[in-house]
Simulated assay, not measured.
Amino acid sequence: MSAVPAAPQAASAEPPAHRPAAGPDLSLLLVPPRARTGWRLVPARIGAMCAVELQKLRHDRTELYTRAVQPALWLLIFGETFTRLKAIPTGGIPYLDYLAPGIIAQSAMFIAIFYGIMIIWERDSGVLTKLLVTPTPRAALVTGKAFAAGVKALLQAVVVVLIAAALGVAMTWNPLRLLGVVAVVLLGSAFFSCLSMAIAGIVLTRDRLMGIGQAITMPLFFGSNALYPVDLMPGWLQAVSKANPLSYQVDALRGLLIGTPSHLPLDFAVLALATVAGIAAASALLRRLAR
C-alpha cells in the first residue's frame, strides 16, 4: 500500500490577538536629547530664563494688582483735572488722551527700573552663582531677564489701556498698531531693566540700588514728553529729553495708540540700540556682581 502523505501541520504561532504587546522603548530615557548648538543655543537659553522669571509671577500675582493703583491714580486724578483746566496745549487732543501713552511708558519703566534688586537677591541667595557656572552665556541670561521684565510691563500696560478705555480715551484697536505697542513696551522695559542690572553691578547692594533707582525715576519721567510737549520745556530740558529713551518710547506709543504725529522709525531705532547697549553693559558687569 502506498503511504498517504501527511497533512502539513498548522503554524504554531499564536494569533495576533494573543501576542504580547511591545513595551515602551525605554532606551529613549537613557539617551539624552541632542544639545542645541550654534545659533539655536542663545534663543533657547533666553526663552528658558524668561520662562523661569515668569513662573515667579504665576505664583504671586499681588504685584500686578498693587502696581495698577499708581497709573490709575495718574489717569483718574491728574488726567481728569488737567483735562478740565486745559492748561497744557496738546494740539486739540484731550489731555487725558495725550497722557495715557505717557502713563503706559511710566508704569513700564517703574517696573523695570528696580529689576536689579531681584538679581542682587539672587546673588545673596546663591542662585546667580549657579546660573553663571552653566553653559548659558551671560548675554542670554541678561536678555532673558530683561524681556521677562518686558512681559510684566506688558501686562501692566494692558491694565492701563483698559482703564483709559473705560475713561473714554480714543485709542486705536488696529491689530498691527497694537503689535507695534507690544514691541515698544518690550524694548523700553528691556532697556530700563538692563540699566537697573548694570547699576546693580556697580553698587552691589540693594539699599544703594533702591536709593539710586528712586533718584533717577522721577527725573527720567519729568524729563520726558510723558506729561507735556517738548516745546514747552526750557532749552536745557529739551536737550535732556532728546537724550532720554523714555521720550522715544512715549512718542512711539502716542503715535501708535492715538495717531499723533510721531517719528516711528527713529523711535524704534533708538529703543533697539539702547536695549542692545543695555544688554552689553549689564552682561559685562554681571560677573562683578557675582564675586
Rank of each mutant, 00 (worst) to 15 (best):
G180D: 09
G126I: 01
L96Y: 07
G278F: 02
R177K: 10
P245E: 01
S262N: 12
I258E: 03
V270H: 08
A239F: 05
A284L: 10
F110V: 14
T134L: 04
A198R: 13
L286I: 07
L253G: 00
R61Y: 05
R19Y: 11
R208I: 09
V127Q: 15
S247E: 09
S196Q: 04
L264G: 01
S247D: 10
P24S: 11
A280I: 11
A10S: 13
A11S: 14
A252R: 00
A10K: 11
A149V: 02
A148Y: 05
A72Y: 06
L285K: 07
A252L: 02
W236S: 06
P137G: 08
E122N: 05
Y248N: 02
A72Q: 08
S125A: 12
V142A: 07
L154Q: 01
I111Y: 12
H18C: 08
L227R: 03
S193L: 04
G211D: 00
A269S: 13
L54T: 11
Q214Y: 11
W39D: 14
A274L: 06
D97M: 09
G79S: 04
R287C: 07
L256K: 02
V151F: 15
A165F: 10
G91H: 13
L178S: 05
T62G: 14
S125H: 06
F110M: 14
G180A: 02
F191W: 04
H59D: 15
I93M: 12
A10V: 10
I103Y: 04
K56A: 14
P135Q: 09
A190V: 01
V4A: 07
R288V: 03
A281P: 01
T217A: 15
V181R: 02
M1H: 13
A243T: 03
S189M: 04
L64I: 15
Y65H: 07
A280K: 10
W173D: 11
A100D: 03
G47P: 08
L179Q: 00
V161S: 10
L54I: 10
A149T: 08
L99P: 00
G144Q: 03
L264F: 04
P24D: 09
S241Y: 01
A190K: 00
S125Y: 10
T83N: 12
L227G: 00
V270L: 06
T62N: 12
R40G: 06
A140F: 04
F192Y: 15
S283D: 05
V158M: 08
L257S: 06
K145Q: 13
S262T: 10
G188E: 13
S241T: 14
R40V: 06
A108H: 05
E80T: 15
L141T: 07
G223L: 09
